[in-house]
């Protein structure tokens, strides 16, 4: 069966079973699948693409190493295990007890396996879609994403209720998805 058809858990079990013989095909596939999830977690909690990239390497290279060494007790719950590693590592980064040098020392600067490139939108098309929004919608979207203001802050800035901002924001992002050809 092609690896693409296997569940994450089955890939984790194959990696654990191979141990130091290293099933690089299974490792590469698991890395490819989990990298976007870890990167998004990093972006959400660290708000820094470089830090998110480091998090992907730290968490996934450590996970693969522990799978090979039989140190992951429940390989069938690999996604949950990786999430736990993300949470722990982000806490360490925030406390200042994690250093990038550790990553270099442990893994010798290896980049790990190939990860899919982050989704990139056509900037020109997005600008046109933003221009097509109503002014209020554009204000809410730009305050949310550029100024990184939560709904209640946007509400205060625009003299609206937080509930109203959530409605406008949802509608505006829905329109952007449609305009960008993303809506299903």
């Amino acid at each position: 069966m092609p690896l693409e058809g296997l569940e994450d858990a089955e890939l984790a079990r194959r990696i654990a079973a191979a141990g130091e013989r290293i099933d690089s095909a299974a490792e590469s596939e698991l890395y490819r699948r989990l990298a976007p999830r870890v990167r998004l977690y990093g972006l959400r909690h660290l708000r820094d693409p470089h830090a998110a990239h480091d998090l992907v390497q730290q968490v996934l290279l450590t996970t693969l190493e522990r799978l090979r060494a039989g140190k992951v007790r429940e390989p069938e719950r690999i996604a949950s295990y990786v999430l736990g590693m993300c949470r722990m590592t982000v806490l360490e980064i925030r406390r200042g007890t994690w250093r990038r040098e550790q990553l270099l020392e442990t893994y010798g600067g290896t980049e790990g396996y190939d990860a899919p490139e982050p989704v990139a939108l056509d900037g020109e098309r997005l600008a046109k879609c933003l221009e097509a929004l109503a002014e209020r919608e554009r204000s809410v979207v730009s305050l949310s994403f550029f100024a990184e203001q939560a709904g209640d802050e946007v509400a205060k800035a625009l003299g609206l209720s937080a509930g109203n901002v959530r409605v406008i924001r949802h509608r505006a992002i829905g329109k952007l998805r449609e305009c960008m050809g993303e809506a299903q």
Binding site: L43, L121, L126
Partner: peptide, 9 residues
């Protein structure tokens, strides 16, 4: 997609 949209804005 949402993260890319935020980055695009």
């Amino acid at each position: 997609w949402l993260a890319a949209c935020a980055g695009g804005v």
